[in-house]
């Protein structure tokens, strides 16, 4: 029994706790005020009718029924977001890996290529989107002009409901710089001896990739996929700007522009939240949609917490 030591130990404990609390305090306050409160309030407002002018009134499940059953844009928005999550993420990871392989293999001018491939990632999303809408403008854009000069019949890109999302994917591939750097770093980490050993065994290029490169970069690929999914669920700016500009509709003061041109093909869930909450002031319905988005995000996040995604390790 070390009774005499106990008060001192306790004091030390308390001090340590206070210290920890002190260091964590910015985040604790931030988490409570800027995350906890609004999340609960979102749940609260999802059961209220509130036009941000008159006092909120309780309406039970009306907002939920409205969003899930009556609102025609809910389906397209959900579909587009899922489409982008699947296609955009898959292509970005594949393309990023390809570019990563390419820059690690190129012998001359590697510095130039790296910079060239990386720069577009730095272009602010709004600027990059504005540029792409112009470049891919079917009537006057240089891309279609060039394509028709060589006799290729070009699509209408952002102006065609079937091509609008692929055009957004193209835009996202242009900004592949972040993934390129990650893949490049991990590819350079693969021990050279393993390649040499594989070569001795007479492995071809494909076999080398399959049996040497791939196993060592799998965690990075996983990481790229999961963070890609999370980013794409928030996909907002590019889709909104592309739709707005490509529609050619002047934002005459007064006119409410429904996002998603053409034909809701670029309407994502976050855009719909904005449109409901800040254009229609349908607070309740916007909050319902927010919670749907929250549920999906949490489902993905729980995947992330698994070991393979690499965000948390066993000793955490």
């Amino acid at each position: 029994m070390a009774i005499p030591l106990a008060p001192e130990l306790r004091r030390k404990r308390t001090r340590e706790r206070l210290r920890t609390l002190g260091f964590l305090s910015p985040w604790l306050v931030g988490f409570t005020v800027f995350f906890g409160y609004p999340l609960l309030a979102t749940v609260y407002f999802s059961f209220m009718h509130y036009n941000q002018i008159q006092s909120p009134t309780f309406v039970g499940l009306r907002n939920w029924r409205y969003v899930l059953e009556q609102m025609p844009l809910f389906g397209p928005a959900l579909w587009n977001t899922l489409w982008l999550v699947v296609v955009m993420v898959a292509l970005r990871v594949a393309f990023g890996l390809g570019i990563g392989l390419l820059v690690t293999k190129v012998k001359t001018g590697a510095g130039f290529f790296r910079t060239a491939f990386y720069l577009p990632y730095l272009a602010p999303p709004v600027a990059a989107t504005v540029a792409f809408v112009f470049l891919l403008n079917p009537g006057t854009g240089p891309v279609n002009e060039a394509l028709s000069a060589v006799g290729v019949s070009a699509p209408n890109w952002f102006n065609d409901p079937d091509w609008a999302k692929p055009s957004l994917v193209l835009l996202s591939l242009w900004g592949i710089g972040d993934l390129m750097v990650i893949f490049m770093a991990s590819l350079l980490d693969v021990p050279k001896e393993q390649y040499e050993a594989a070569e001795l065994d007479g492995a071809g290029a494909f076999a080398k990739f399959r049996y040497v490169t791939w196993p060592s970069i799998v965690p990075i690929v996983m990481f790229a996929v999961v963070t890609g999914v999370v980013q794409t669920m928030q996909y907002y700016t590019q889709a909104l700007v592309a739709g707005k500009l490509a529609s050619g509709v002047s934002i005459g003061p007064g006119t409410v522009i429904q996002p998603g041109y053409p034909d809701h093909s670029t309407l994502t869930v976050p855009q719909l939240v904005y449109s409901l909450g800040f254009q229609n002031f349908n607070t309740g319905a916007a909050c319902v949609l927010s919670l749907v988005l929250f549920a999906i995000a949490m489902a993905v996040t729980s995947l992330l917490m698994r070991k393979r995604a690499g965000l948390l390790t066993a000793e955490d």
Partner: peptide
């Protein structure tokens, strides 16, 4: 990590 992964649109309305 959860807050990092959360789309900002989820909580924007009450915050606004």
């Amino acid at each position: 990590i959860s807050t990092m992964m959360l789309p900002p649109q989820v909580i924007v309305i009450p915050m606004y």
